[in-house]
């Protein structure tokens, strides 16, 4: 049984008469100890999906799903108080900008201990010991003195380590990292990624790594899930995805990686942007931007079949399979 099973997740914003689906019928699974990458450009619904999982979507946003099962609990059927016993303990999340994601008025120590107190009931010396242990676990030097530091006194990389310490405080079964390195320098990015990978292996956590940069997770993840406009458009093992992408959107993403297009004079870019509230196509959501689009593509939505949501998936040579 998978650790997390999502079936037909929908997250809608806007009025009931004119809803805007930020997540549109998403299916997703992750096993214990598995590392899955979710990629897609801004606005593709990656973060909203995870926010829905965490129960952080507020009215007027609406979350529905056929199944949203984590570790045997159907999260949408739980009462808020029961759900909060899971969120922050068994599922936890780290965010893009660590400095703004930490409360500026409290010390790092306070913010780490808070989870330990609320979820684990730790007090006194045990609490102190565990907090220190966590800071050491995320490789913060002079950990003891850093417990009393405020977020503004630490660097961006240090703050992200603190965020990670907060997130793994209660030994979660699933950790969601939402673009954890976007706001950091390249060298620090690599360190944070290594740290996350190590913690994931050591604690056998499920890790969902959200990014808009395929290169970042190419080395880490076993499986990658490509999202576009609130849907999963392709899902495949990393090696297959990089060698032979089957969805035109995945192909476009790969072509946008500088290392992948050596020799080309200009870096390839996908024209246009993710459809918004008023220009959501009737057919395949990518059809207005897709270079292979046929008549059928703009008429009907394709379903996710065999890991790809396309009528004319690309073949191994990267050519479209229509007519």
């Amino acid at each position: 049984m998978s650790l997390l099973k999502i079936r037909n997740l929908r997250v809608e914003f806007g009025s009931l008469a004119h809803p805007f689906p930020a997540v549109d019928g998403l299916d997703f699974d992750i096993d214990r100890g598995e590392l899955v990458g979710i990629v897609g450009e801004s606005g593709s619904g990656k973060s909203v999906t995870m926010m829905a999982l965490m129960g952080l979507i507020d009215a007027p946003g609406r979350v529905t799903a056929d199944e949203l099962v984590f570790d045997g609990h159907d999260l949408l059927k739980l009462k808020p108080a029961q759900r909060r016993k899971i969120v922050g303990k068994d599922i936890s999340m780290i965010f893009q900008d660590a400095l703004t994601s930490l409360n500026p008025s409290y010390t790092v120590g306070f913010q780490i201990k808070e989870s330990l107190k609320v979820h684990m009931g730790l007090r006194g010396a045990a609490l102190e010991k565990r907090a220190l242990e966590l800071l050491e676990l995320v490789e913060i030097p002079a950990a003891k003195s850093r417990l009393g530091a405020y977020p503004h006194q630490l660097s961006g990389g240090m703050n992200q380590r603190v965020m990670i310490a907060v997130a793994i405080a209660c030994n979660p079964k699933l950790l969601i990292a939402d673009e954890p390195t976007t706001a950091l320098d390249v060298t620090i990015q690599a360190q944070i990624m290594d740290l996350l990978e190590r913690l994931q292996k050591e604690h056998n956590m499920g890790l969902i790594m959200i990014t808009h940069d395929l290169a970042v997770i190419a080395e880490m993840a076993k499986r990658i899930c490509v999202m576009y406009a609130g849907q999963v458009v392709e899902q495949a093992p990393v090696a297959d995805l990089f060698r032979a992408p089957r969805h035109p959107y995945t192909q476009a993403l790969l072509e946008a990686i500088p290392e992948h297009s050596k020799g080309a004079r200009r870096l390839s870019a996908l024209p246009g942007i993710v459809p918004g509230h008023y220009d959501r196509p009737k057919g395949c959501l990518l059809s207005p931007r897709c270079r292979y689009a046929q008549d059928k593509c703009s008429q009907e939505r394709p379903a996710l079949l065999d890991g790809v949501r396309c009528y004319y998936p690309l073949n191994a040579e990267g050519e479209s399979t229509h007519g």
């Binding site: 952080l56 909060r84 016993k85 969120v87 922050g88 936890s92 999340m93 965010f95 989870s115 609320v118």
Partner: peptide, 8 residues
């Protein structure tokens, strides 16, 4: 958002 994600 972080505080809520902690399950508080």
């Amino acid at each position: 958002r972080t505080a809520r994600a902690k399950g508080l």
